[in-house]
Amino acid sequence: MIRVIIADDHTVVRNGLRHILERTSDFEVVGEAARGTEVPQLVRELSPHVILLDLSMPGRNGLELIRQLRTDHPALRILVLTMHAEEQYVVRAFRAGAAGYLTKESAATELVEALRKVAAGGTYVSPAMAEKLALGLQEKPDAPHEGLSDRELEVFRRIVDGESLTQIAAALCVSAKTVSTYKMRLMEKLQLRSDAALVRYAIEARLFGDEDKL
């Protein structure tokens, strides 16, 4: 039996994933987490084989959490399940130590296959995403945003989504001053001077997948 923890801040999503897994005979959902800060202790207590991990939970940056989990529990297999289908998130997740990457819109049809492959020691990325990733990696020059840290990228995304520094600070469980520092650093790295310029950069680079909403 493959022991699974589901980590996602949306109750509806967790219930849906649990329902999918409970219809199979080889998975046991042993725990759930709604905040990134809950995950390390839950993993220590429950010793799962695989964790289904959302990248955007409150309290901890998902990429940082992957690194910590891989350091503390080398045998743990991590399958990222997220709304982010953009290339930079896929690449960063695998570099951090994820064994698989799946978008939430693909979960209904690909989740069981992905979990089985990851639990067996393999890696998983959907065919559509693999093609997109391969095309994006074909000898392109390094873009300025590739030099951002994981936390700077997260702050960048939230600024583009229209969140205030106070809202970002609350979501990341840090002070507004700390968020301001991250913002200053990312603007220096991108050589931009305003929020409008950040939004324009995100649209032109197609960074966060929501350009049509901006």
Results as ranks from 00 to 15, higher is better:
178 T>S: 11
171 A>R: 10
206 R>L: 06
188 E>G: 08
202 A>W: 03
161 D>G: 03
203 I>L: 14
190 L>V: 10
189 K>L: 08
194 S>K: 05
194 S>F: 09
203 I>N: 10
204 E>D: 13
164 S>E: 05
185 R>Q: 15
180 S>C: 04
206 R>K: 14
171 A>D: 06
166 T>V: 12
180 S>R: 12
186 L>D: 02
165 L>I: 12
189 K>M: 07
159 I>C: 06
165 L>N: 13
176 A>L: 01
201 Y>V: 05
174 V>E: 00
185 R>S: 15
192 L>I: 13
190 L>A: 05
184 M>C: 02
161 D>F: 11
187 M>Q: 09
199 V>I: 15
160 V>Q: 01
201 Y>T: 06
187 M>I: 08
205 A>R: 14
189 K>V: 11
168 I>T: 05
166 T>R: 14
162 G>Y: 10
175 S>G: 12
181 T>A: 13
203 I>R: 14
163 E>F: 15
177 K>A: 14
183 K>E: 12
170 A>W: 01
195 D>G: 11
173 C>R: 15
159 I>L: 11
188 E>F: 00
184 M>T: 09
169 A>Q: 03
204 E>F: 04
189 K>T: 12
161 D>C: 02
186 L>F: 06
186 L>E: 03
168 I>N: 00
175 S>D: 06
158 R>K: 15
164 S>A: 02
175 S>Q: 06
170 A>I: 03
206 R>C: 01
184 M>K: 11
197 A>H: 05
195 D>R: 12
164 S>L: 02
162 G>I: 09
198 L>R: 04
193 R>T: 12
168 I>M: 04
183 K>N: 09
188 E>Y: 01
171 A>N: 13
181 T>K: 11
158 R>Q: 14
185 R>V: 12
184 M>L: 13
162 G>W: 10
190 L>K: 06
205 A>F: 07
201 Y>E: 04
169 A>P: 03
186 L>S: 02
199 V>H: 05
202 A>V: 07
160 V>H: 03
182 Y>Q: 10
182 Y>K: 02
165 L>D: 15
201 Y>H: 11
160 V>M: 04
173 C>A: 13
162 G>S: 09
200 R>L: 14
199 V>Y: 01
175 S>I: 09
179 V>D: 02
164 S>W: 05
176 A>E: 13
198 L>K: 07
184 M>N: 11
165 L>Q: 14
191 Q>F: 01
167 Q>G: 11
157 R>Y: 05
167 Q>W: 01
165 L>C: 12
